[in-house]
Design a protein around this nucleic acid. Structure first.
Lengths: 223, 223
DNA sequence: CTACAACCTTGTAGTCCCTGAATTTATTCT
DNA sequence: AGAATAAATTCAGGGACTACAAGGTTGTAG
């Protein structure tokens, strides 16, 4: 937490759900360091661009050594757009908590919308900064290196568990998850670009379209 | 083309369509260099793993300087899994050539299946090697840096042109393309893992499922 | 509260990726 | 052939990232 306004608004971190407060000092410090590094990375890169900021500077802003940075994130990119293992856990749990007879796509849709709801009011600024960075550096969009990949895998497993399919044998869960995440990815960036409609509405429409088999939308030319 | 068997099988390159033969010497040499670099990269990394091969070695194997490597590929990863601008052109043209009254998703599906057909018989080995590399280094899956991103954008524009939608305003083309490419990506890797069914069949089923709105498949548990 | 083990952080040294600029070599045009 | 153009090479350098070997902090058990 470098030279920032409110030192007590420690909850202004890209993560969404509540964390268990019962952690030892060591664990709490690790979470703080991780947050500080992530915030410093996002803030500095938002100001100066990806190539205008070195890992050394990010580490210095978070008041740890450069070497320590790489103990927390395998890559500079991951500090910016990587997915927290914590978030993955929350999402898969939310998915498992949906009613068992719910359609798989509907369940994934509900979880994603719920998270978009939670994000919108509180930490919109931080997410907008993040998305603006992604927009300016397209390789961050799909990438974020290994983390997005493990995200997909974890979600696919959760979906597979829901509907009794082995994701390693049946491609259905992986395809569903990939399509859903593509929607989140694309509409998030769009939402950042034009502050008009709420993100939840954009996602909702896109998921509707997906559930109907992506028919040509009303505005499309028929012939 | 280092110490390889047949120097005359120069057509064994990951690209698929036919190239116009009317090119100057300079252009032909550039294509050859690009191919040599790509092949050397895939071959060496398939043998020794991603971290066991340096750009210097790839360049040496292709008999150009290290600096020249970066004149052809912005990144080491791109030499392995990047998409050729040439391929993008071919695909968008194929998309434009589909009947105008065809459903957008059906058109994209047709183009992807057609390309899968062309790949299968001839260059299966090279593609298998490529896919095996991707499987061993998950960050290459989604990534390949900027090239997938521009691939998505180009395709989205082509789809938008087909159905009279501006991809910058309406998210439909981008979502459709992302879902389609996710299918290609996932099923390709799956096809590499288990050499059973032909790639075209796998893709065909997945596109069917997508067009029906991703309903839970037969094997799924209902309650 | 002290000893001890486990873990985290740090510094060092080095490899490799990637880039800009200047120079040299190869193709194309006239 | 000679001029114009484009590509390949050399050189110098910054920055990402890693293995290794200390040194500090935290948890734990007597």
């Amino acid at each position: 937490m470098t030279t920032q306004a409110g030192p007590d608004r420690a909850t202004m971190e890209p993560s969404v759900g509540a964390r268990p407060a019962e952690l030892g000092l060591r664990e709490r410090k690790k979470l703080r360091t991780r947050r500080a590094l992530r915030m410093a990375a996002i803030r500095l890169v938002a100001e100066r661009g990806l190539d205008g900021v070195s890992v050394d500077e990010i580490a210095a802003a978070a008041e740890v050594s450069t070497r320590t940075f790489f103990n927390y994130f395998p890559t500079k990119d991951d500090a910016l757009v990587g997915i927290d293992p914590e978030d993955i856990r929350e999402i898969t749990e939310a998915l498992a908590a949906r009613p068992a007879d719910e359609d798989p796509l509907a369940a994934v849709r509900a979880v994603m919308l719920q998270r978009a709801e939670l994000i919108a009011p509180e930490q919109a600024d931080l997410w907008r900064a993040r998305l603006a960075i992604i927009r300016r550096h397209p390789h961050l969009m799909t990438a974020s290196a290994a983390s997005w990949s493990s995200y997909e895998n974890a979600l696919a497993e959760a979906v597979g568990r829901r509907c009794g399919l082995d994701p390693a044998r049946d491609p259905y869960p992986a395809v569903l998850v990939a399509a859903a995440l593509a929607i989140v990815r694309i509409l998030s960036v769009r939402w950042q670009e034009s502050p008009g409609a709420p993100l939840v509405d954009l996602l909702s429409q896109a998921f509707d379209s997906l559930a109907r088999g992506l028919p040509p939308p009303p505005g499309a030319s028929p012939a």
